[in-house]
Design a protein around this nucleic acid. Structure first.
Lengths: 230, 230
DNA sequence: AGAAAACTGTCAACTGGTTTACAATTGCTC
DNA sequence: GAGCAATTGTAAACCAGTTGACAGTTTTCT
């Protein structure tokens, strides 16, 4: 399933384009494979490709001067990333890494911007989706500000499990493949600090912990539990 | 200076529109005045106007069930807000309040979306600016995760002073009109916790504290100081 | 001017999360 | 399948920021 056209056709960002446009995009696209933990691009690189995930998981993160990594988000197959697409001239603002083995369809930035101009009916969808990403970013800021660590970690788990499901309705346990350390790097906490909360959630039967993975047993129950605290 | 056209013409978001389009927008726009602390819209309201600030400051915030307010950002005159413009059907996601007395030019959402479609050359500017807002939101998440409270508060002060200057080059002290409590609500901290850091900054001559305002004496020096810690 | 309201400064007790350190487990590689 | 690296579990000391409480200051309102 690495047919570029098919991948692009299923990407929500490109839903506003007619088939002809996507076939054209597919011809200009490059399909690349990455191994787990292989860097896709680094902060600062001048490229501006639009990347659509055909398979695998991609981790968007930022590493500061002291070498600490802040994991900003994990994207699943079907979604898109590549923050510089819409701001030509700016380089990459964050780094992207294959979290698991991944296959990407990369559409060159200049070509994509030209395609948008030629099919302006596609703009509203793009704007809507970017707006939504802005909102989810802002809700994280809001939760960082207002809620306690327990609620924040739980909320992040729900967010991750939702990404995993790709928007499909929830049914049964969802397993997220992240180490405790990755979670800690997302929360701005330590591995040990996260551990305590996760253990508490496990004791309440909300999640199950494994080596390198966390299984959310019942999203609804977790959500309900979070509502009660802080 | 409450001429709707002039205000719209100076708004960066609308820079891609020809004059004719903005005159049309001005005719459809409504100019409204607000007193300090008067609500502009509340979370959940179904409207989707695009709001451009002619005068004054606007506070975007979210109040949770417990009545705690998270101040997300303070917008200055010349900028725009109204998160629901690009996602018709969704209501307001956050609340907006006049932080100081303010005058707004409000363009109805449906009309604005129609205008965009009729002048598609304006889209790239809009996309670029929304992308930039997404980035600044993400950098806040990143800093929340990686940096200590001192650095985070300092960074926020710099961000606020930059907003105050409206992008103009820095020269001399900049005064930000915010109570310690507002800063605390932006950082997810308590008034007392913020106080300690601000007092330390003041002791180092980086800022001056006043009743309801904070003066950043030397942005460059503050920036440099922040680089040294955490 | 006088009173009320909002904001600020300060301090001690408390506490949740970090730090530091080490042991146990899991999974991968040769 | 032995060895090694990565991940996880655990616990005590520590500390930055919160909580709660109160007094002083500035502004606004009448």
């Amino acid at each position: 399933m690495t047919d570029a056209y098919t991948v692009l056709r299923h990407c929500p960002l490109l839903a506003g384009f007619p088939d002809a446009a996507l076939h054209e995009a597919a011809r200009h696209a490059r399909v690349r494979s990455f191994q787990a933990n292989q860097p896709i691009y680094e902060k600062g690189e001048p490229q501006s490709n639009l990347c659509v995930i055909a398979e695998g998981l991609v981790r968007i993160s930022s590493v500061n001067a002291q070498g600490q990594e802040a994991v900003l988000i994990i994207f699943d197959s079907g979604t898109w990333f590549g923050d510089a697409v819409f701001s030509p001239g700016t380089g990459r603002v964050y780094g992207a890494t294959a979290h698991e083995a991944a296959v990407l369809v990369e559409v060159p930035g200049p070509f994509f911007r030209d395609l948008l101009q030629r099919y302006p009916q596609s703009y509203p969808v793009v704007l809507d989706l970017i707006s939504q990403r802005l909102w989810s970013a802002i809700s994280m800021i809001e939760e960082d500000a207002l809620r306690g660590t327990q609620a924040r970690i739980g909320q992040r788990l729900l967010f991750l499990s939702q990404m995993q499901r790709g928007g499909k309705p929830e049914s049964g346990p969802v397993t997220v493949r992240l180490t405790r350390e990755h979670i800690a790097n997302m929360m701005g906490m330590t591995r040990q600090g996260v551990h305590r909360t996760l253990k508490a959630f496990e004791a309440q039967g909300l999640i199950t912990l494994g080596y390198g993975r966390i299984t959310i047993e019942d999203e609804a129950a977790l959500r309900e539990h979070l509502a009660t605290l802080n």
